[in-house]
Design a protein around this nucleic acid. Structure first.
Lengths: 137, 137
DNA sequence: TTACATATGTAATAGTATAACATTAGAGGT
DNA sequence: ACCTCTAATGTTATACTATTACATATGTAA
């Protein structure tokens, strides 16, 4: 078996471990934790935490997924080309996470931090909210 | 010995554990990790992780310190009244963390997220930068 | 003083992530 | 086809971060 494993058209050039982790996150759409991913993919041949973390690290580096720091979870990227800059809303009540899609966000954000002694290389923004359905109920 | 332990004028009404943890963070000014705090305060009578985490939780709740999620560290609050909203710069090279002081930040930030289906209850913003001295060297 | 909420102390354990090392696979050049 | 280099893998062990559970003590207010 080839290790680039081009079973699906998408996610070519990924290795098998990277692809099955990405597929799981893609199919889920929700933030998943590393050890949950490990449990879910035992049957696919993932045996150790390190295998999961290595795949996750690579996928984060490629911008295909993001880590949501405050909940130690990983989620499929909902944009394109946002390997370094991320912004999420997290519902305080139900925990639902959505990636904020806003191509102008980066510029706005840069304006916020006006200290020209430093340059922003990347950012991670986590907004806690009451989501629509939790607001109603 | 009273458990409110008003040794210093500041930080009155805190318990002993809360006060020694806060004092350490105040004197340090840098982000510290929970187990580092534990080691540092062994001689003051802190014996277990839980004692540290309980003090940290309370201080975060009071807005006296903040947790920097992406580095699992805690830092003294550099503002006032920002129990729920935090913004930091973190140098990619040297790791130095600074809290962003900007009383207009909250309004600006709210404008960024224009989806009126949801309301922001709090936020945590982590900007990775090259700090002044790392930029030069 | 009673009652209640909050904080403490302690031991055990759960959850998250990386170090170290040996091995294998893929991509490019000759 | 072969060599070489880089990246990924597999495995074991361990380090780091945080919470559960339970018994005890303290502070505050009726």
């Amino acid at each position: 078996m080839s290790s680039t494993y081009t079973h699906s058209k998408k996610n070519q050039s990924l290795t098998k471990n990277q692809r099955i982790v990405l597929d799981l996150l893609q199919n889920s759409g929700e933030p998943l934790k590393a050890y949950f991913i490990l449990d879910s993919l035992k049957k696919e041949g993932l045996n150790s935490p390190l295998q999961v973390y290595r795949a996750l690290d690579k996928l984060v580096e490629l911008g295909k997924i993001h880590k949501i720091e405050s909940i130690n979870s990983f989620i499929i990227c909902n944009n394109s080309n946002c390997a370094s800059n991320t912004a999420f809303t997290i519902c305080e009540r139900c925990g639902k996470v959505k990636e904020i899609k806003n191509k102008y966000l980066k510029d706005s954000v840069s304006d916020l931090v006006k200290d020209n002694q430093l340059e922003i290389t990347r950012y991670n923004l986590e907004f806690y909210v009451l989501c629509k359905s939790c607001k109603i109920n």
